[in-house]
Amino acid sequence: MTAETTPPAARAPAGPRQLARQRRRASLVRFWNRYRSHRAGLLGLALLALFALAALTAPLTVGPDVASVTEAPGRPMESPSGDFPLGTDRFGRDLLGLLIWGTRVSLLIGLLAALLSVVIGALVGITAGHFRGVYDTVMMRVTDWFLVMPTLVLAIALATVMSRSLGTIVLAIGVTSWPTTARLVRAQTLAVESRPYIERAKALGGGHRHVMSRHVLPNVMPLVLAQATLIISSSILAEATLAFLGLGDPTVVSWGGLLQEAREAGAVSSGDWWYLVPPGIAIAVVALAFTLCGRAVESVLNPRLGVAR
């Protein structure tokens, strides 16, 4: 005698939130499947993972005492050796430890400055493309003024008149690098608002806030994300430039600060390459990594660009 099998219970219909989570999960899976086909993007992601790991584990691997001048373990300007793989600086500090510790500051400034830049650019671009008229004209003229002005000169001017701190560097870079994002987001906003479902949303009573937050913002976010990855690399380069010019925070260790100290110590004229080369290579590699990731993200989100893999 065989037991009768009962049909499985019918599943309850998924709610709106569950459907939204399923769509987001499926979108992330599709994004990753496309992203991992870009070998250059994977290389950039691997490099960024190494830098992020070094930054997160720096308090455990080198500790904050590595920046102490009074507790320097070596003699000033020692060449690379077994005890000091990258040599020592003019105070006798381990340059390898300083390089690892400086990763924290350089990446933090790059991320915060890029965040500030894309927030300003997205806000200006979305509002200008949505409201148009006089507001659009005024904001685009302001954007054009920032575009024609040298970004580095504006950042140097702000860093000069304000106190020397990490917040000043972030503010100086962020408020001078947003115009490109604003222009791109405005163009995308105009394209989105010309679609029929925007007219339907307005006809059903959707206000300005609803249209911009529920319809425009989700459509411009991929562009903002791709732009953010590219701005991070330029922000790190700008921070290194400001620190090299002596406009950074002298109380913290960064890659640009190491280059500035090497210049002051006369490493160029004396041929102490270990003081100059490692920070310069670190800046170049992390900027390249963010650029590779940005190009891959842009290619995934907009396949029509046809970026070479």
Rank of each mutant, 00 (worst) to 15 (best):
V142E: 04
R34T: 06
A113T: 02
G102K: 00
F131R: 13
L98Q: 14
S213F: 10
E199N: 13
L56N: 05
R263C: 01
V118C: 01
G41K: 01
R164C: 05
S254Y: 00
G205K: 12
G97L: 09
G167T: 09
R17K: 08
A26V: 14
N33S: 12
R186M: 12
A54K: 03
V29N: 09
P279R: 03
E71N: 11
R304D: 15
P278S: 06
D65V: 14
G280A: 08
N33T: 10
L99A: 05
M1V: 07
S299H: 06
G121C: 04
S68T: 11
S106P: 00
N219M: 10
G44F: 01
V224E: 04
L305M: 11
T180I: 06
S163F: 03
A282P: 00
L107G: 01
P303E: 08
L19G: 07
D89F: 08
L115E: 01
R214S: 12
A172W: 00
G125Y: 02
A287V: 08
F84R: 05
L301P: 01
S299M: 02
Y275A: 14
A157W: 09
S37M: 11
E264A: 12
Y35A: 07
T61S: 06
R104W: 11
A72S: 14
R24T: 15
A287I: 04
V211D: 04
F131Y: 15
A289L: 07
T127N: 12
G15R: 05
